[in-house]
Write a protein that binds this DNA or RNA. Structure first.
Lengths: 219, 219
DNA sequence: GTTTGTGAAGGCTTTCACAGCC
DNA sequence: GGCTGTGAAAGCCTTCACAAAC
């Protein structure tokens, strides 16, 4: 009924809440697929292995989207979450590093579906430049990063280079005006405070599994 | 000097600590590359943008690896962390889902380097079976999961299928005896309590960037 | 009756700060 | 002098539990 809160101080919202909103969005989309029109936080929690109080609290930071005694309208909730996350407008992505991961991400549905669009894949290795990725995107020269970023209105940079190149590439991305960076290189890169950097080290997850396996031997 | 603690209750160690040990390992390896022999927690923290008290606390859960007044021996510390994380022996990985991400991970250095080894890539799509991945691994029939897992002593399963297949594949992995699962499908999969499941949803990270971009407009 | 939105409680993580040791 | 290892303090996040709303 009440819709959005007027003065959400973004700084006070935890990263964890934002990550969960992403998850809720996937859940709500699955409910839409199977034709569910209304859902309570408890129902959502049971179906998807979540916590109902947490769902309510996460959503309540942004507004009053539910109806007491009833629950949430699924279609409306989807739209609210899309707007909160800024997924109602296009985000243009530039990938630097045309190795296995970089070329895979070009065509990964999460990266090239909905309102995300990969507008270029760059590499500095001359043997890769001009080569087509599996789905036909041409790899371009990383030296042209700034030019390409501006020309194609890229907003998000994705680093899929080896560790040694990650910081220089990050610096170039910042000076090219990219405003957010997703770094897959196994090193913590730094940027100026007005550019958001997220590092995703896939190997960490494997190593967590390794720790668990090595410390829970079945008797 | 003192080396490992004898009775570390693994249950009491936070996932966050384990994830950071992974990061410390990368840092220490970089120090080895540039010939640093001894490092203090403060030095480590400054170089890699970490917190020195946290480094000391994380390490101290597992033993007393440092020397007061001096710091940590870099080579020794590397070896300690490798052993804590169980990276001193091989882990055999079976990937199910030969799409862009699955085939990329086969040859991703993090997944096929050090003591991790991809022993198979499976898919249920007949048009993919028998096809070679970019680096020459043949895609096999997902129906043979149990057989292949046992034959090749696979221990870790990686799910890179679409969301709809993730839970059935997870179930098969569990009954095939895999003991840990890394799930890249955008859905929370469930397994029995003795199998560790980690879900990594790459889209979440992009959506987090989208949120910050949409809520931090430059004036 | 049901379910939301939310203060308060509880639990977990990080940071501080210093005794103990080199 | 310097640095580790660690209790205590502070901060953060989740969960509880219930008044308010339907």
């Amino acid at each position: 009924m009440v819709a959005y809160k007027r003065h959400v101080d973004v700084e006070t919202i935890s990263d964890l809440t934002i990550a969960r909103l992403s998850i809720y969005l996937r859940c709500v989309e699955r409910l839409l697929d199977i034709g569910v029109e209304t859902v309570s936080s408890q129902d959502l929690a049971q179906r998807f292995n979540l916590n109902s109080a947490q769902i309510r609290k996460d959503l309540a930071y942004f507004g009053e989207f539910g109806v007491r005694g009833v629950g949430y309208n699924v279609a409306e909730l989807r739209q609210y979450v899309i707007e909160i996350l800024g997924l109602d407008h296009e985000h243009r992505i530039l990938i630097v590093g045309a190795g296995n991961l970089g070329t895979a991400l070009c065509h990964y549905s999460g990266f090239s579906g909905d309102n995300f669009l990969v507008v270029g894949v760059l590499d500095s290795d001359p043997s890769k430049i001009g080569v087509a990725t599996p789905a036909g995107l041409l790899v371009e020269d990383a030296a042209r990063l700034a030019e390409i970023a501006e020309q194609r209105n890229a907003e998000i940079g994705v680093i899929t280079t080896p560790a040694a190149s990650a910081q220089p590439v990050c610096d170039q991305m910042v000076s090219a005006g990219l405003r957010a960076i997703l770094n897959f290189a196994p090193i913590q890169v730094k940027a100026s405070d007005d550019v958001l950097v997220k590092t995703v080290d896939l190997k960490i997850h494997l190593e967590e599994l390794s720790f668990y396996l090595s410390n829970s031997e079945v008797e």
